[in-house]
């Protein structure tokens, strides 16, 4: 067993432990702090799975922004959780059905790192070998982002632009 497997297994075990602790705690401030730990752990897991950009987003949004947002919510609603009056059977049934559907969905997935997986066999060779002739840009990543997925990128740019306008409208209000 390689060292990477050991690291992945330890990180997953710590993730499960922190999730159980998150469920058992009643103090909301501790819950928010532990959710920060949860996202730091999952960001570490993403790094070890080579998804560095996802790890970047998880660290910035999950551990940074969400913690501060939830702290702002705690400042309004108070620090203790009120005991729920609903029964526990219905949520358990819903979660069991959802979880079994998700686990059933993973049965069809190719093994992690499988070179014959559809995502490696279908469009990636065309991007790698023919994008130079088809698009005329030497960098494959650039031609995928700017040409093959041009509309996708245009939509992302529109979303980021809208978000920037929203932030400017909220923060840029003059104080008289």
């Amino acid at each position: 067993m390689g060292i990477e497997t050991i690291i992945n297994l330890s990180l997953l075990t710590l993730l499960a432990l922190s999730a159980i602790v998150l469920m058992r705690l009643q103090n909301l401030l501790a819950v928010v702090l532990l959710s920060g730990i949860y996202s730091l752990l999952s960001a570490g897991l993403f790094v070890s799975l080579d998804a560095v950009d996802v790890a970047f987003t998880e660290a910035a949004v999950g551990a940074g922004l969400t913690t501060i947002l939830l702290l702002g919510a705690i400042a309004i609603i108070g620090k203790e959780q009120t005991v729920s009056r609903h029964g526990k059977l219905l949520p358990l049934v819903v979660i069991a059905i959802t979880a079994s559907a998700l686990i059933y969905g993973t049965l069809d997935m190719p093994i992690f790192g499988d070179p014959t997986a559809p995502i490696h066999a279908y469009v990636a060779p065309r991007y790698l070998f023919q994008s130079g002739e088809e698009i005329g840009i030497p960098n494959v990543v650039t031609s995928v982002l700017a040409s093959y997925r041009g509309y996708d990128t245009l939509g992302e740019v529109a979303v980021v632009f809208t978000a920037a306008i929203g932030v400017l409208l909220l923060l840029g209000k003059p104080n008289k």
Binding site: L33, V52, G64
Partner: peptide
């Protein structure tokens, strides 16, 4: 990325 984590760690501690 590790450096980004260090920065984020700082901001959330300040917020708490």
């Amino acid at each position: 990325i590790a450096l980004l984590y260090a920065l984020i760690n700082f901001t959330s501690t300040i917020a708490v």
